[in-house]
Computed example of a mutant assay.
Amino acid sequence: MTYDLLIDAGNTRIKWALAAPGAVLGDWDAHGAHMHADAADFPSALAAALASCTGPGTGAPAVGRVLIANVAGQAVRDMLTAWLAAPQLGIAQPAIEWFASLPQRAGVRNAYRNPSQLGCDRFAAAIGAHALCPDKDIVVANCGTATTIDAITKDGTFLGGMILPGLGLMASSLAKNTAQLPQVKPGKLPEGFANNTDDAILSGCLAAQAGAIERAFELHQATECIISGGAAPYIAPAVPVPHRHVDNIVMIGLHAALRSA
């Protein structure tokens, strides 16, 4: 059996998943995530996962297709290219596609003024959201290093969206640029008005994230809201509009893009 390998190389982490042919959207046989600092573990982790998926005595692990969304720059692209070609994986270059924002793919029309300038992770998230919720006006919020909030129409048109600093980046900016304010890690939203500085920072940052999602939902008159990304577990409880938390919306979009190819 050959597998589809999906890779989402973000600004903080490199995430990957293995999907068997014909698998349900978002149903991975194996998956993992590596912070950039320990990303060198990626090749061995993937090789072990492939060996486990194929099982003993079934021949060499095989990857048929690779689709990579990379927003982390050329250095990460070069690193991934070298790792995929390493002997323990041996994935041929023709099998690898670098996902890019196109005018149209997988049932989503990209209405960005310059379609190629749309971040490929945002386009993948839009494809994933539309695949999960066809025939609905959707807002998808991907809450990572940056928070992106985008609108997709029921007929699959990506309208555009918003970009703001992510939850951690907001808190870090306050700690770095304001005297005597502490660095605050994401956590549960305090009840009511905060009566200490740590909770006041957290409350303000969460309110800004949740308020932007609510604003986009109302502006789009959406019927569905998907929240994803590493900070989603902290932000989602503060969002006052109907929503659901979906893990790895970018990789779900990559999976949908490959299935439509």
Rank of each mutant, 00 (worst) to 15 (best):
D41T: 12
Q104Y: 06
G161D: 01
T157R: 12
T223Y: 03
Y112F: 14
Q221V: 12
I14Y: 04
T197W: 00
T223I: 11
N70E: 01
G253M: 01
T2K: 12
N196C: 14
G161F: 04
A200T: 10
W16I: 07
K185E: 15
R259P: 08
A47F: 02
A37E: 15
A151R: 00
G168M: 09
Q221R: 15
I227H: 03
A131I: 07
P87S: 10
N248D: 15
V24K: 13
A207N: 15
E214R: 14
R105N: 04
G187H: 10
S172D: 15
A238S: 15
N110Y: 03
R215W: 11
E191N: 11
P61L: 03
G192A: 08
A82P: 03
A222E: 02
A49K: 07
I252R: 02
A194I: 02
V239I: 13
P94D: 08
C205F: 09
A23R: 07
W16M: 05
R13W: 11
D78R: 09
L84W: 06
S228T: 06
D8E: 10
V250H: 07
A129W: 08
G230M: 05
R259N: 13
T223V: 14
Q209W: 06
I127K: 06
R259T: 15
V71K: 04
G192L: 08
V108E: 03
E224S: 13
P190R: 05
Q74A: 12
R77E: 09
N195Y: 06
D27A: 15
G211H: 04
T58V: 13
I14M: 06
S203M: 05
P237W: 09
C133P: 07
I138G: 09
P87I: 00
C225H: 07
L118S: 01
A231S: 14
W28G: 01
G10T: 10
W16L: 00
A111M: 14
N114A: 15
A175Y: 06
G187F: 09
A72L: 00
P87C: 09
T157Q: 14
T12W: 02
A179Q: 10
L118D: 10
A216K: 04
D135I: 12
A85S: 14
R13A: 12
A30S: 11
P134T: 14
R65L: 11
P190F: 00
D4E: 12
K185W: 01
V24H: 13
A45N: 03
I14E: 02
A62I: 01
P240K: 11
P94F: 10
M162F: 14
L167R: 05
Y234Q: 04
T81K: 07
T223R: 09
K185R: 14
C53M: 04
G168C: 04
H243S: 14
R13S: 12
A49G: 08
L50P: 06
A72V: 05
G10M: 04
H220D: 11
L174T: 05
A106M: 02
L189Y: 12
A17Q: 04
A33F: 10
K136F: 07
A222W: 03
A17T: 02
